[in-house]
Nucleic acid binder design. Structure first.
Lengths: 185, 185
DNA sequence: TGCTGCATGTAATGTGTTACATGATTTG
DNA sequence: CAAATCATGTAACACATTACATGCAGCA
């Protein structure tokens, strides 16, 4: 089984989801996967008895398959969790553009960073909404580190922290640009 | 041309490099690429006249090709820099394991996080060495945001910040685990 | 009436990883 | 004496993205 398979098991271990929902969750977790990758994998995991699904017929909406993790799936997931993790893979095009920043003029650079700042400010806002929802709905369970919500909570906390740091970095760079512009006057 | 092609141009725009060196640089930038991907791409970019190379014969070591960016390459790179950047792709297995943390016992969870902490403490140490080297060698040029070193400097500063935040997150989680263990006694 | 959301699936293509291949020199 | 470093290259395979395919409901 491949990494994405385990990642899906990991998410489904919190509670059952449809493939469609998993696409959104993965996007929110910055681990984007297309539905064309997720649907066949879910089928495969079901054939391997790592997952089971309930077919729900709907009216006015397409029917759906709600996948749950099986005993076998949980065992496989546990083994994966305690296995060595490779270094995180980060493919951030913006940061690689920053690397060669000197090729563009100061004003263009400034507007690129301002755009990045705006994008991350939005991310932080929506992340805060998610976190507040978790905090409200699971106030007491969050103190229990063995609760299902705890892992999800600290996961989102980390994402939130990262996004806030991106904002402060953008602001720092913008201040350096402004300082530089002043010395040129 | 694909994204990795532009990323290579971006790095080579700072100064000429060999394929072998590019593999190391990409790894340090958390954008890992194998040599089997880089070497053929460099050839392709050379054929497209985005890059040129100097063949250097060595004694005691294999010969090497030092690639430099061309005028055409710089123009293509500039267009890429000002183009829209997709959201960063982050594939962090460890964080997805944390998501399903409740499946493992508290002590195992604790040791996983301690391991992560140790890995990132090492990363921070080596990152600080790199940053100090840049600060020493380019003290004056760093104030000039149009210098070649500036982009590289703020890039590494961001990486450093991220790694430090990972450490503080790990420590925060460990403290939550300890608090929880105490309430159980 | 055209777009977005819900919901699933397959096929073709593009990208990334692992493995195969070579070989001298340095370090433990 | 085995492993790592330097240095490049290709082939096979696995994984990811884009495109093709369907269809109803609700909204502007």
């Amino acid at each position: 089984m491949n990494t994405l398979g385990y990642v899906l098991l990991s998410i489904i271990s919190i509670r059952p989801y449809t493939g469609y929902e998993l696409v959104q969750i993965m996007a929110a977790a910055s681990w984007k996967a297309n539905h064309s990758q997720i649907y066949p994998l879910l089928s495969k995991l079901e054939q391997q008895e790592m997952l089971s699904f309930e077919y729900v017929e709907q009216i006015g909406k397409p029917n759906k398959k709600i996948y749950s993790i099986t005993e076998k799936g949980e065992e496989a997931l546990k083994d994966w969790i305690v296995s060595e993790s490779p270094d995180p893979i980060i493919r951030d095009e913006f940061m690689m553009k920053i690397y060669a920043m000197k090729l563009i003029d100061t004003n263009t650079a400034k507007s690129l960073i301002e755009k990045r700042l705006a994008i991350f400010e939005e991310k932080v806002t929506s992340r805060e909404a998610t976190l507040q929802a978790i905090e409200k709905n699971h106030q007491e369970t969050l103190k229990d580190i063995t609760s299902k919500q705890f892992g999800r909570y600290i996961f989102f906390k980390r994402k939130h922290q990262m996004e806030k740091e991106e904002i402060s970095w953008c602001k720092w760079v913008l201040s350096l640009i402004d300082d530089y512009s002043k010395t040129k006057d």
